[in-house]
Design a protein around this nucleic acid. Sequence first.
DNA 1: TCTGGGGTCCTAGGACCC
DNA 2: TCTGGGGTCCTAGGACCC
Length: 422
Amino acid sequence: MRKRHASLYALIDCNNFYASCERVFQPELKNIPLIILSNNDGCVVARSNEAKKLGIPMGVPFFKVRPLVERGDVRVRSSNYELYGDMSRRVMQTLQRLAPDVEIYSIDEAFCDLSGFTDHDLAAFARELRETILRWTGIPVSIGIAPTKTLAKAANHAAKKADGILVLRSEAVRHAVLGLLPTRDVWGIGRQHEKLLASYGINTALEFAQAPDAWIRRYLRVTGLRTAFELRGIACIPIEEQSPAKKSLATTRMFGRPITAIEELIEATASYAARATEKLRRECLQARHIEVFFHSSPFKEPYYQGSASYSLPVASDYAPEFIRYASHGVRAQFRPGFRYIKAGILLSDLTHPYERQLSFLDETHTEKRDAIMRTVDVVNRRWGKNSLFYASAGIQRTWSMKREMRSRSYTTRLDELLCVPS
DNA sequence: TCTGGGGTCCTAGGACCC
DNA sequence: TCTGGGGTCCTAGGACCC
C-alpha cells in the first residue's frame, strides 16, 4: 500500500524574465532601470526591478514613458522572442533534471509536484534549484511552495519581495501571506472581479477565501469557487505534465500604421493566414475552422470591427485554401472609410494525429493494460479538471464539459482503446 | 501621433429535436 | 384545445492567464 502524502506544489518563476534574458547577454544592463517593449514597440511588456521602482506599470503604452527614456533614466530594448524562447528551454531543461513532475506553465513559469518532501528536504531543494538555475542559465528565479497551485503562486509572489524562497505550509503563514495579498494578485482574479469584490468590501485574498461558497459561486462562477477552495488549501488543480492538445491557433498583428485600402487588408490577412498555416504544419495539426477579423482603433471614433468565419468541409493545412477564405471574408465585411490598425486569423477545430497516444500499441501484451490505463488517465485529466471538481463540490455539470465528454475524437479513441482484443 | 500577441475556460441564449 | 420540458448543438461574448 502506497502511503499518501498531503499535496505540495512548487511554483518556479523567472524574475522579470525578458529583462533578465537581455541582461545575460548585455551585462551592462544590470542594476539599472530596464524595460522591454512589445512587437511594434507599442507598450511595455517587461520591467526590471529598478524600472518597477520608478513606477512604470506593466502594459503601459511606450509614448507615456518615452520622456523617462529620453532623459536617460531608463534603458529600453525591443523584445526578442527567439532569445526568450531559447532561454526558457534552458531553464526548463535544467528544472526537469532536478525536479520531479514538472509542468511547464508558461514561458517563464513551471510547477512541480513535491508531495512527500519533508520540511528539511524542501529548504535544501529550493536553495539548490535556485542556485543551479542561476549558475547554468544566468536567470534568477523565485520559488513558492504550498499545498495548492494557487497558494504556490501566492507564496511565490511573497517570495519575490523577500529572499526568493517561501514555503507556505502552516496555517499561520497562510493567513499572513493571504492577509497581505490584494485580490487582484490572486491567480484567477482579474480586474473585473477585483472591482466587483471591492464593491462588497473584499480586498484581500484572505477575505475572499473566507467568503461563503454560495456567494462566490453566484458572482464569480465555478472558476472563482475553485480559486477560493485552492486558497483554503484544498487542491483542485492538478499538475499536468503532458500539455493538453492545442485547440486553436492564431496569427494577429497590429499594422503599425492605419490601413484604409481593402487591397492592403487582403494582403495582410493573406500573409497572416500563411503564417498560421506554417504553425499548423509545424505542430502536425489540421484545422476545420477559420476566422478572419480586422478592426479600427478601439480608442477612436468611429470604430468598426469586421469578422467572418468559415467551416471547411474537411480539415486542412493547405495555405491557399485558408488564404482564399481570408480574402473572401475581408471582401464581405470590409467597410470603406475606416482606419484599420489590426487584423488576424484564428484557426480552430484543430485535429491531430494520435501518434503520442498510439505509441503504446507497439508494446507487448502484458504492458497493454497499463498502457490503456495510462491513456485513460491522460484523457481523464483533460476532462477531469472540472469533472472531479464538480463532483466534489456538488455543482451541476456544465454544458461545455458535457460537450467535451461526447467529443467524437476522444470518445471513439477511448472505445477503440478499451475494445482492443487482448 | 503613439496602446502586444497568443491562448483557455465558462456561461447565456437561440435553434432545433423529440 | 391546452402548449412542456429536457437534451443537443452552436455561437457570441466575457472573464481570465502569460
